[in-house]
Amino acid sequence: MKEISKELMASSLAPIILLILRRQESYGYEIIQEIERLSGKKLAVAEGTLYPILKKMEAKEWIAATWKTGSTGKERRYYALTQKGHIELDSQYEQWNFLHDLINTLWKSPNLTYNRL
């Protein structure tokens, strides 16, 4: 199991959720299962804290929620990506890539001074 700091986890959960919802609409428990599956069970999310994050994203209109009855007959709150969510995801993806590249460059060239980067 990967230990990821609370702060890093908090900032990276939003794009992860948006990416999962880009594939298809889903509900809380399924999102957590999907994160676990895709990370090879290496990433653990404090399950209950996912819902306040979903609510924040809903308030920002990145996602929309509806109560639906699933195939098992159980009612669940399904979340779907909105148009605004798509734009936000593109922006966050770009920002993550930029940071990822920067961190990689610095990691690979520890002796470079800042003005030669």
Partner: peptide, 14 residues
Amino acid sequence: NSDRHELQAHLEDS
């Protein structure tokens, strides 16, 4: 109330 139902469904699934 909506959060309550959502968390209840989550615990049941889990």
